[in-house]
């Protein structure tokens, strides 16, 4: 399987901004996750971000909190997720999003090794800044899985190269000061930020947190190499099931350039 960065570069060359929906593994059950992993690429998802549920998701807003809680209640765990992924014959380009503690508990080396053989191409750990991530970065580099670090609105310009240095996949630009699913407000500063980051690194930049409509995705797609949509997807899934989530991604996919 191709690396996440190559996948993004290829899309960029074709003039396409990647559509990256986020889904919580095991919400509302693993069968739904499996179905979505098949259906979302058909709907236009270029990469899927798969969330590993945690009991204390401090970077997430109420929608993803609820989804994580629900999935955990039904007994999801890292083993089920990794094993389940491994059994899938076809799957999209995948990045995993998980808080640090479950990974630490599972064992960093063991996690990275299993993640690679499960087809996970990149890792996002929202509570792990590069300064604390030495061990994970080292293991990821050794096993050939991409590291994806975040840049926030509060990240000073001089820190951007530090984050880029630790990143091998793409820069995840957090669009707002707040948790996932908050109101993103004006898009203009985000677009300027994308341009600023791109002037400092050759890594692809994907934007997420609070992007919830095709219109927003369209505007962002003119500047960024990817747009990540999480809470809005989970909301559709909550309200209208798999079909609703798939249709939503179709709309997003048609909107982006």
């Amino acid at each position: 399987m191709k690396g996440i960065t190559e996948r993004l570069r290829e899309l960029t060359q074709r003039g396409r901004c990647a559509v990256i929906p986020y889904i919580t593994a095991g919400y509302p059950d693993w069968d739904t996750t499996k179905a979505l992993l098949q259906r979302l690429p058909e709907a236009g998802a270029d990469i899927v971000e798969l969330g590993i549920p945690f009991s204390d998701p401090m970077a997430d807003g109420p929608v993803i909190q609820r989804a994580s809680e629900e999935a955990l209640k039904k007994g999801i765990n890292l083993e089920i997720i990794l094993k389940g992924l491994q059994e899938l014959t076809t799957k999209p380009s995948l990045v995993a999003m998980g808080y640090y503690n479950p990974i630490l508990r599972y064992g960093i080396e063991r996690f990275v090794e299993r993640a690679v053989s499960a087809g996970i191409g990149g890792l996002i750990v929202p509570d792990l800044p590069p300064e604390e991530g030495e061990e994970l970065i080292e293991a990821a580099n050794r096993h050939g899985v991409a590291t994806i670090f975040l840049i926030a609105p509060t990240t000073p310009r001089e820190r951007i190269p530090v984050i880029a240095e630790a990143t091998t996949g793409f820069i995840y630009l957090v669009s707002l000061k707040g948790v996932t699913g908050s109101d993103v407000g004006s898009l203009k500063p985000i677009l300027e930020r994308v341009d600023e980051i791109r002037s400092l690194t050759s890594l692809p930049v994907c934007v997420g947190f609070g992007i919830s409509t095709p219109e927003q995705a369209k505007i962002i797609s003119r500047h960024a190499q990817g747009v990540i949509i999480g809470s809005a997807v989970i909301k559709r899934l909550e309200e209208k099931g798999i079909e609703g989530a798939v249709r939503f991604i179709e709309e997003i996919s048609e909107a982006v350039v």
Binding site: P129, E131, E132, A152, T154, R159, I163, K177, G178
Partner: peptide, 12 residues
């Protein structure tokens, strides 16, 4: 110890 926080809090 350490500083295991979302990036938004790192600079603050």
């Amino acid at each position: 110890g350490g500083r295991f926080v979302p990036e938004t809090l790192f600079a603050p």
